[in-house]
């Protein structure tokens, strides 16, 4: 399995009535960022834009942004051991040494997000795993538990020497169109 699984060659479908193109199940949006904390915001914004286009609620979009941010934090922090220190000022070196891939798969009932980093990562237990919760005054260790609470599912796996975190956020059924006009009787 790879990060490109699920890519469709012709994602857009043209609505015969409106003429507009619309997305369909399993459309994929991908972002690749350098493995440095400075770029994680770009991945968050990209995924948030996808969530907005899907019509996710403000609450769900906040959850997705946070989960993606946390997964990227881990990918950057625990990326391939032995790489140059990415906390330094040399962003170019960091960019060359590690990359983080984020893929949003638009399904009819959910937004599915993969975050993949090269290297061994943080060695999560494959499958669905519940991380221990940190002590109240701990300064670290809240990222993965947060992800698991705010997303509908989080799975961890190792793919060809890389670490993959796959998360899902269910799409709440859209609300019915509001009734407009004083003569409207039924909706």
């Amino acid at each position: 399995m790879g990060i490109n699984d699920g890519v469709m060659s012709d994602c857009a479908v043209r609505d015969p009535d409106s003429g507009h193109e619309s997305v369909r199940d399993t459309d994929l949006v991908q972002v690749r960022i350098p493995g440095h904390a400075a770029y994680i915001g770009i991945a968050r914004q990209a995924v948030d834009a996808v969530g907005e286009q899907m019509g996710l609620s403000a609450e769900d979009r906040s959850a997705v942004k946070l989960a993606v941010g946390e997964a990227c934090n881990n990918a950057v922090q625990y990326g391939r051991p032995g790489d140059p220190d990415t906390k330094g000022a040399d962003l170019c070196a960091a960019a060359k040494s590690r990359m983080v891939f984020v893929a949003c798969r638009l399904r009819s009932d959910a937004l599915e997000i993969d975050v993949l980093n090269r290297g061994n990562g943080f060695h999560p237990v494959p499958g669905v795993y519940s991380m221990p919760k940190p002590e109240a005054l701990a300064e670290h260790g809240r990222g993965l538990p947060l992800m698991e609470i705010i997303m509908d599912s989080v799975e961890y796996s190792n793919v060809d020497g890389s670490t993959l975190v796959r998360m899902r956020k269910q799409v709440t059924p859209p609300l019915a169109e509001p009734c407009l006009g004083e003569n409207a009787v039924t909706c």
């Binding site: 701990a138 300064e139 947060l146």
Partner: peptide
């Protein structure tokens, strides 16, 4: 408009 676990940890560190 956004805070993550690192931000929370930083605030906890400040509190301590």
């Amino acid at each position: 408009d956004y805070i993550d676990s690192t931000g929370l940890g930083t605030l906890v560190g400040g509190l301590k």
